[in-house]
Design a protein around this nucleic acid. Structure first.
Lengths: 341, 341
DNA sequence: GCCATAGCGTGGAAACGTTTCATCGACGCC
DNA sequence: GGCGTCGATGAAACGTTTCCACGCTATGGC
């Protein structure tokens, strides 16, 4: 079977312009040592033949691709989609293309994805690990930047989840809340752990002061909408006395909790204040508008790309960069009914 | 500058196994004419050296990539993100990788994206055109499947928007509504046109019967959340008598409209019924849960890939495939207050 | 029993389209 | 006239796949 071949290649251009292969190549790569007249002849020939360089051949010869791989669990998570979008834009601006593989929160798929990318000779990989993976096979000698969920001994870019969670808790406390429940993420997720830790940093003393069992007010779930609804339902059932506020570890969870509150006839924010985390677009549209901790997505994406390319050129020991989140106050929080400020 | 080279290639394997290059290649490609003993020797050598084929070199030699390109306006639109996710999954199952480029709803970027993909020698492109593009440069001899927004003279996969919109309108009418407003998409978007047409198919006779100016009840906007909120606000202002129901051409618009309704103290569904379009995840979580016309995303993705690869192997004249939508009834609709069924 | 032939499996080389390095010719300058 | 400089050429290389040729064995006809 004869594969379909390129219609016009560098050789045709060279012939048309009456120069050698090498000269055409140097024109293409803006090499200075070409006479202006020749350069122009070559340019004309390229135009006329509608020649486009064969990126695959270039890759093979150069040993570099101008292509990065991105491994992300699931674009249906709006935060991931936003991240992906920003990564693509940042990459494109630097002349890189993006190979996208979704891992579906599955560790095996992740390893396969990275092997595929290695085999395709991408210049680097941006990797957003699923919750259950903890160690990445070091077999692939490939620049990798881990994003959002740190993995030890790897370059890392992420938001300061713990500080962000503290901001949320502090805010609720400042409003007068003391019994604050928390919907955390999966127990083995480092992000969930960090956000929970931040929450506990602030809340532990309050719970101890009130002699309430903290653990009953914290429940784990996935980061998605449905899980948030279910977790909130559970909290409404088991928490006595009822919490006056709720910190959800993702906006999706928070929106699910909003849903659950509506289903239980609990008015937000009058009976219950809710804070989310991530700052996804829809958080500003639900009723009530969701107060949330916003992650600087564009910054994360940009930093990841920058770090990746730096690493690809001159390797050094792994670095971490942490970005601050900010609290976006909207309508889903109010002082508790039993404690008007 | 000497590029970093592959550590171990097919030549090393051949040497280690004591066979020729060709034999190793034939083992890799499961060519039948290799003795079992040799085959095993080669396999062992591959294992031992941890050899992985160089996909770029394979592409160059084979003239095919096992890679497809996807051009999509913006992943922050949850419908697009869902589509992208499904495309990637379908592609991966068939052994293809996905090169993603976002076009940001910009025609120039789209053309560039397709040129980039052509230059990278992808086996085909799945293209979701932005609203303002109408003609695609035919210069690139590349299999293309257009998805969701038809472009003439191209292979096409999409949902039957018009029939879907009719379903929505019929449903509202069956509930007793007669004054139904519509938030359409951008005027030059074919999708918006189709959905509006479906809406009008049903509604025109009713408006004529009531001697009401249809045009006042239809307003155009973008497909996103914010635009939906603004459009709804406009409708609330200019429509007299006030509509009892609202058909939004996207779930995002519908959720924005929900937001606007809440801001104006309009209770949904008591004072106003709302139907959306797309069937994005969050539509099931907002308050009230959104009744919507659901597009079969997974089917669309799968059909697009299938059609693309068929086209790549044996080209024929362009085909179109239309998929039916289905109405998902939830809580955002009720009979009109002034006309209890 | 021997040679011709067919069939099978393997090795070697060419090719895919590019970049880059060494080489070489021309030209001007001292 | 030698030499340095500059610009252009041609060939090698990147890592594969595939085609052709070759040698070996098995088979059949005489």
């Amino acid at each position: 079977m004869v594969p379909t071949r390129q219609t016009v290649n560098i050789r045709h251009v060279a012939h048309k312009a009456g120069v050698s292969l090498g000269t055409v190549s140097r024109v293409l790569n803006d090499h200075p040592s070409v006479t202006d007249s020749l350069r122009q002849r070559v340019r004309d020939a390229i135009q006329e033949l509608k020649y486009r360089p064969h990126a695959v051949a270039q890759s093979l010869r150069r040993g570099t691709n101008r292509m990065i791989g991105v491994v992300i669990p699931d674009l249906r998570n709006p935060f991931f989609a936003d991240l992906m979008q920003n990564i693509e834009i940042s990459a494109r601006m630097l002349g890189y293309s993006v190979l996208f593989i979704s891992s579906d929160e599955d560790a095996t798929t992740e390893v396969q994805a990275i092997e595929t990318l290695a085999s395709r000779k991408v210049d680097g990989v941006i990797f957003l690990p699923s919750n259950d993976v903890h160690v990445l096979p070091r077999t692939v000698p490939l620049p990798i930047v881990v994003i959002d969920r740190p993995l030890d001994a790897h370059y890392f870019v992420g938001a300061d989840h713990r500080a962000g969670a503290r901001m949320a808790a502090d805010y609720l406390v400042s409003l007068g809340h003391r019994r604050i429940a928390c919907i955390s993420g999966p127990a083995d997720s480092s992000v969930a752990q960090a956000r929970l830790a931040g929450f506990l940093d602030v809340m532990t003393p309050h719970f101890e002061a009130a002699e309430l069992p903290m653990s009953r007010y914290v429940v784990h779930g996935d980061f998605d909408y449905v899980s948030g609804r279910e977790a909130a339902t559970t909290l409404f059932r088991i928490c006595t006395p009822a919490p006056t506020a709720l910190f959800a570890c993702s906006d999706q969870q928070a929106i699910g909790a909003l849903r659950a509150a509506a289903d239980h006839g609990i008015a937000v924010p009058r009976d219950l204040s809710i804070v989310g985390f991530d700052g996804i677009l829809v958080a500003d549209l639900v009723t009530p508008r969701l107060t949330t901790v916003h992650q600087p997505v564009a910054q994360l994406a940009d930093a990841a790309i920058t770090m990746l390319l730096e690493q690809a050129t001159h390797a050094q020991s792994p670095i971490s960069r942490l970005f601050a989140c900010d609290l976006v106050v909207r309508e889903s929080c109010a002082p508790p009914a039993d404690h008007p400020c």
